[in-house]
Amino acid sequence: MIVLTSFSDEELFELVKENRKDAYEEIYHRFKGVLYAHAYRMLGDREEVQDLIQEVFVALWTKKDSLLIKNVSAYLYSSVRNRVIDRVSRLKSRNKYLDSMAFYAEHYSYQVPDRILYEKELRGLIETEVNALPERMRLIFQMSRKEHLSHKEIGEKLGLSETTVKKQVNNALKILRSKFSSRDTFIFFLFIYSLPQ
């Protein structure tokens, strides 16, 4: 049996390109801790960092055939950095937009047509955040909130325990609430997504 721990990162990646999941897992275990610490220093949000690290490793596996990597460590750090920059940029843009919308609502909410437009834009913003959830979490959350399925029904459809489904829904709500936590104006819209099942 080959001991992969003695292989270099680049040798492991060559095995990954041959669909060797054990080599992929070895790379994952070598780098997950340091990449997590690196991203956490920049973002300071555990759940956000966990999602980001998961995205980096999923991309490594799914794009392995088209990636030309000379230095695995440099590639992974660069991927993490780019995703952090993207998230920070999106957060700044979203916060600027939310501040603008909150000001507008506070000063012009008495105008009914404008209020309807405002609410429509808010719903769109929330929908964007829902779509940004990790894939499985988003699927479960949408089945719960849009299809109005119970946790038990979702579990049966997806082959998951009711507890797992409940945890995924709660995690989704926690993520969504954190995006809008300082915005009292948005609580009503978040409430729509958090009605008990």
Results as ranks from 00 to 15, higher is better:
I53M: 03
E55C: 03
E55V: 03
E55D: 15
V56R: 02
V56K: 05
V56L: 05
F57E: 04
V58Y: 05
A59C: 09
D65L: 10
S66L: 14
L67C: 02
K70V: 10
K70I: 09
S73Y: 06
A74V: 11
Y75E: 12
R81D: 12
N82R: 03
I85Q: 00
V88M: 04
S93Y: 06
R94C: 07
R94E: 15
N95Y: 08
K96P: 02
K96V: 06
L98W: 01
D99T: 04
D99W: 15
M101H: 01
E106G: 06
Y108C: 14
Y108R: 15
Y108G: 03
Y110D: 07
V112M: 05
D114Y: 15
R115K: 12
Y118I: 04
Y118R: 03
Y118V: 00
K120L: 12
R123K: 13
L125R: 04
I126K: 05
E127W: 09
E127I: 08
T128P: 07
L133A: 02
R136H: 07
L139H: 00
L139T: 08
L139D: 07
I140D: 14
M143W: 01
S144Y: 14
R145M: 14
E147Y: 03
L149C: 11
S150Y: 03
S150V: 01
H151L: 05
K152M: 07
E153T: 02
G155D: 01
G155Q: 05
K157Q: 14
G159F: 06
T163I: 11
T164V: 04
T164W: 08
V165K: 04
V165P: 13
K166M: 06
K167H: 08
N170T: 02
N170H: 06
N171G: 12
N171T: 03
I175P: 00
R177E: 01
T185C: 08
T185A: 11
T185D: 12
T185G: 13
F186Q: 05
F186S: 13
I187L: 07
F189C: 13
F191W: 04
